[in-house]
């Protein structure tokens, strides 16, 4: 390695994993390239939580529902399971990166290298230094995005088949990568699009607000719908 090249830190590696892609400006001479690493990460988490809630509802869940006599409790338990699952996945990712840094003797620090952001991630950032808020965005926003989309997917699975629900999530993620808009949650899940990296980027507060709306909205809609949900019909159609 060149002596002038600084070592990548723990947060640099996480940034590289969760970065996403910078804003795409459609042009006939510039093809859109999907951020496949970012997409795979989120889709894999969505896939791993797709089967369990619906399977549980059409098997053991019916007995639990009869015994506990509380549909809302069952729904809350599934939401909590979903959140815990995502937290564990991200914890494993963080631990893996720490182990990688230890093996490669890279510093385990939260200092972002501007060279790394501009040269490797090609972020074209006008900033020479990055605020601490970007560190929180890198650590938290991809996780919040996963939690929001997982809850939304579970709620949608009550209305449409789980596989179509997964398809809708894939469309949301792809649309987020393509469209640079604050109304698509995926944009906040790409730290490279933060206002700490690019001038017209998305704000921390905007991200928190959208994730809260998604999480609370999915939970409430799920609660409301699940109270009247025909579980026996689901059992027949499984």
């Amino acid at each position: 390695m060149d002596e002038s090249t600084p070592a990548g830190t723990f947060i640099d590696y996480l940034f590289s994993m969760f970065a996403g892609i910078k804003e795409y400006v459609p042009s006939m001479t510039d093809e859109f390239l999907i951020p496949v690493k970012w997409l795979l990460l989120h889709l894999f988490i969505l896939y791993s939580t797709l089967y369990y809630p619906s399977r549980d509802l059409s098997s053991l869940g019916i007995n639990i529902l009869i015994r506990t006599k509380g549909r809302i409790i069952w729904w809350i338990s599934k939401c909590l399971w979903n959140i815990c699952y995502v937290l564990v996945v991200y914890l494993l990712i963080f631990i893996s990166v720490i182990i990688f840094c230890l093996i490669m003797k890279e510093p385990i620090s939260l200092n972002i290298n501007p060279m790394f952001v501009n040269d490797l991630l090609e972020a074209e950032s006008p900033y020479d230094t990055f605020s601490n808020q970007l560190v929180y965005i890198i650590l938290l926003f991809p996780m919040f995005l996963s939690i929001s989309l997982n809850l939304l997917q579970m709620t949608l699975s009550l209305l449409i088949k789980p596989l179509y629900s997964f398809g809708v999530m894939a469309v949301i993620l792809l649309s987020s990568a393509y469209l640079f808009t604050p109304y698509l949650a995926g944009n906040y899940g790409m730290p490279i699009r933060s206002n700490h990296v690019v001038e017209n980027g998305f704000t921390f507060s905007g991200g928190i607000l959208l994730f809260l709306i998604l999480i609370v909205g999915s939970f409430m809609i799920g609660c409301f719908y699940f109270r009247r949900y025909d579980i026996l019909d689901m059992e027949e159609n499984k």
């Binding site: 459609p26 042009s27 006939m28 510039d30 093809e31 859109f32 999907i34 997409l39 894939a170 469309v171 792809l174 649309s175 990568a177 393509y178 469209l179």
Partner: peptide, 10 residues
């Protein structure tokens, strides 16, 4: 370079 292409081919 369109959203339709992105969704369809992916």
């Amino acid at each position: 370079f369109s959203l339709g292409y992105t969704l369809f081919f992916t």
